[in-house]
Each structure stands twice: as structure tokens, then as C-alpha cells.
Design a protein around this nucleic acid. Structure first.
Lengths: 129, 129
DNA sequence: TTAATCTTTCCAGTAACTGGAAGGTCAAGG
DNA sequence: CCTTGACCTTCCAGTTACTGGAAAGATTAA
């Protein structure tokens, strides 16, 4: 599959896909004409990168996450430790998103453009430390 | 409050805090000695920025989110529309995080370093389109 | 008063893309 | 066969969002 097709399926711009190849996140085959040739597995990885990047994980963290299922030589304990650390991060992110959600809901429901400097939203907004 | 203190309370490096001021996200007072002087409101904003940036929102999106409770002149309908759009984004992010969580849990539970190229995780990993 | 620890500005470097030029490839229509 | 347009290639420059470091002023503690 050509890069344009992989782009559509993954939701990533072609520029970004080539960039991810440059920094060694994936290595698609090449057709005889020199075009990159993406497998479904490549597309899965790209889609995964698209998601995890959008959720605030750095490229290096994404590289580690990809390694979790790619690196077959890694010891099981290492994999588990790494995955569990990421799971805790994800838990925290979900909680933060729920708080943000709550704050915005509150804003929509109660502050019709007339909020004062001491608007209670300001308190929730910060997550209170 | 000095920048170091604001940094501790917000979780943002001082460098980043100054950068956010450069690009006009907040404007702390200045003490007589020239030091920046952060109010609790400033710290709330910084903490909010720290969170929303970490959750994958761009600086410009964060600027809009901040505007949601700062811009008292904005019409209520506009505020609601914007907030609701952000709420849908947040919903999507939470779903994606849950899927990622599910994938990692599956990895920890079932793939002890012996996963094959056709490992079922690969399917889930990509969110199936 | 001196040393350590702030703080300031400025400027350069990095991370993660993003846009554009210059050119090769391919599928469709005349 | 030839052309046109949509693809693809590489390369290089620009942008976003920081990040590090230098040089110098301010504050605190001994």
C-alpha cells in the first residue's frame, strides 16, 4: 500500500509518516519503483502512534509503547513493569480529562458570560493542586 | 509569589512559564525589583495549562480553553459552542485512553514476551480503524 | 562581606513536525 | 505515443513549543 493510502487509514499526514520513518519508528518495504509499501501491520503501528501522540505521550514514550509488543527478546518482567508504569500514567490522564470535562460542563451550565474573578470554576480549573 | 514558587505549585518549569508569558498566555505582575509576581489566579492558569498540554491539547487550544472563563465579553452562545466542541474532544480522548489501557492490560496478562506477528493485541492496538 | 541561591534577559539548540521546491512515476484520455 | 494530473521521491527551510546556557542583577543565610 502506498503512503497516501496509509495516511488515510492512519489519520497521519504523509509528512509525519515519513518523519516517523526517519527517526526509526517503523520501516516499510520499498516497491521496485522506490515507493514506500506499507503493510497492515505498518498501518496498525501508525494508527497507534497517531492515537498515543494525540493523548500526550512523547515520541520516545510511543517508541517504548511500540517496543512493548515488538521486542520479542525483552524479558517478560521488563515488559510488565513498563506496561504497568504506562497504565498508571493512563489512569492519571483519564482522571485529569474527567476533571477538565467537569470544569467545562460547569462552565456551560452555570457561567453565562457573567462569571466574576472569584468564579468557582477557577478553583476546579486548577485541580486544587 | 516568585516564579520558582509558581513553578512548584503548577508543575511547570520556570522556562516554560516565562515562555507562556512571551506568547501572551498570562501576564503576572512585577515586583519593584523586577521579579515576576504570581497571584493564585496565575497559578491556577498555569496548573490548568500544565494539565491540558499534557493531555494533548495544543497551546492554541489551551489559549481558547483559558479564554472560556477569562473572556467576559464573549457571548454565552459562543462560549457554549466552544466548550461543547472541547467536551466532545475530551470524550474521544477518554475513550482512546481506555482502549490503550485495555490493550496494555491485555499485553501484561496474556503476552509474556512470546507474542507472534499475528498476536491479537496488534488488532486492538490500532483501534481497528 | 561573601557565597549560595534566587531572579532577569537574550540567544542558541532541540523536538516534532510542516511546507515547498525540484523532479521521478503512474493511470487515464486523446 | 503523448500529455495531464495525481501521485510519489528527496532535500532543505520554517514553525511550534519548549529547553539550556551565558551574563548579570537581587536576595538570603552564615
Amino acid at each position: 500500500m502506498n503512503i497516501g493510502n496509509a495516511s488515510e487509514r492512519s489519520g497521519l499526514p504523509t509528512k509525519t509518516i515519513r518523519y516517523y520513518e526517519d527517526i526509526g519508528l517503523l520501516k516499510p518495504d520499498r516497491a521496485d519503483n522506490g515507493y514506500r509499501d506499507y503493510s497492515m501491520s505498518d498501518v496498525h503501528k501508525l494508527r497507534f502512534l497517531q492515537r498515543s501522540r494525540g493523548l500526550g505521550f512523547s515520541v520516545e514514550e510511543c517508541r517504548q509503547l511500540l517496543a512493548l509488543y515488538e521486542d520479542k527478546d525483552r524479558a517478560s518482567a521488563d515488559v510488565k513493569l513498563m506496561a504497568q508504569s504506562k497504565l498508571r500514567e493512563i489512569d492519571r490522564k483519564i482522571i485529569e480529562l474527567r476533571e477538565l470535562q467537569h470544569t467545562l460542563n460547569h462552565l456551560v451550565a452555570h457561567c453565562h458570560g457573567d462569571q466574576r474573578p472569584d468564579c468557582p470554576i477557577l478553583e476546579n480549573m486548577s485541580g486544587k493542586g
